[in-house]
């Protein structure tokens, strides 16, 4: 089980390894707050959907499997969306349409099909947590690079209260060298490409080490 969890991070990282859920990764990696907020929403939906689907896996008729999954996932996303709208209005505005697009995020339906429909609820929950955190991790990595290069500073505020800044880091000397390109779509694609290449190298290295054993 621990291996399942660990796999989600590097070897089978849903974003860099499997290229799942790229739309939201590219769009929401502009700031650390968006990245962490979105990552946690996805993780929450992923865990809940995995557990629910795994619980009903024995009584679900095979013929209408996919419709049942879609109904469950869409319900969970609607609920999460309403809660975020009510309790974290700032985050809701900055995530925008991507919050409701979690429904069509391939990670969730993919894990439901590939894992939760064949395994017990506990294993499914762990798998959901691993994959969700892997996604959050990828999103956070990209957002750190992009936010820093675009602003030469990184701020993280309390999502429940936007005026309370929890963490802020900046290098004033670099202020004139801001590269605002990185906050635009071009920067998103390029940063993502570099990270994907980096992870490809790491994966190759790990595989080689395993073979040597």
């Amino acid at each position: 089980m621990w291996n399942n969890f660990k796999n989600g991070f590097i070897k089978e990282n849903p974003v860099f390894g499997l290229y799942l859920g790229m739309c939201s990764t590219l769009a929401l990696s502009t700031s650390l707050n968006n990245a962490i907020g979105m990552g946690l929403c996805v993780t929450l939906v992923l865990i809940c959907s995995n557990v629910l689907i795994s619980l009903i896996r024995k009584i679900t008729p095979d013929e209408v499997r996919i419709p049942v999954y879609i109904v469950i996932i869409a319900t969970l996303v609607s609920i999460v969306e309403m809660f975020v709208h009510a309790f974290m209005p700032e985050l809701y505005t900055s995530l925008g349409v991507f919050l409701s697009l979690i429904v069509v995020n391939c990670i969730i339906l993919g894990r439901a099909e590939a894992f939760a429909s064949k395994n017990g609820p506990l294993a499914s929950a762990v798998d959901g947590l691993g994959m969700g955190l892997g996604y959050t991790f990828a999103l956070t990595m990209i957002s750190l690079v992009r936010e820093f290069l675009a602003n030469m500073s990184i701020t993280f505020y309390n999502p429940f209260n936007a005026e309370q800044i929890l963490f802020s880091f900046g290098i004033e000397a670099l202020e004139p060298f801001k590269i605002s390109l990185f906050s635009s779509s071009v920067g998103a694609f390029l940063t993502f490409a570099c990270f994907a290449a980096l992870f490809a190298v790491i994966r190759k290295h790990m595989n080689k080490k395993q073979e040597a054993k």
Binding site: V186, A193, A200
Partner: peptide, 16 residues
């Protein structure tokens, strides 16, 4: 290491 999807993403960036 850029073979496959990474280089495709670089191309997408240039198109953007």
């Amino acid at each position: 290491s850029f073979k496959g999807n990474p280089i495709a993403l670089v191309v997408a960036g240039l198109m953007a």
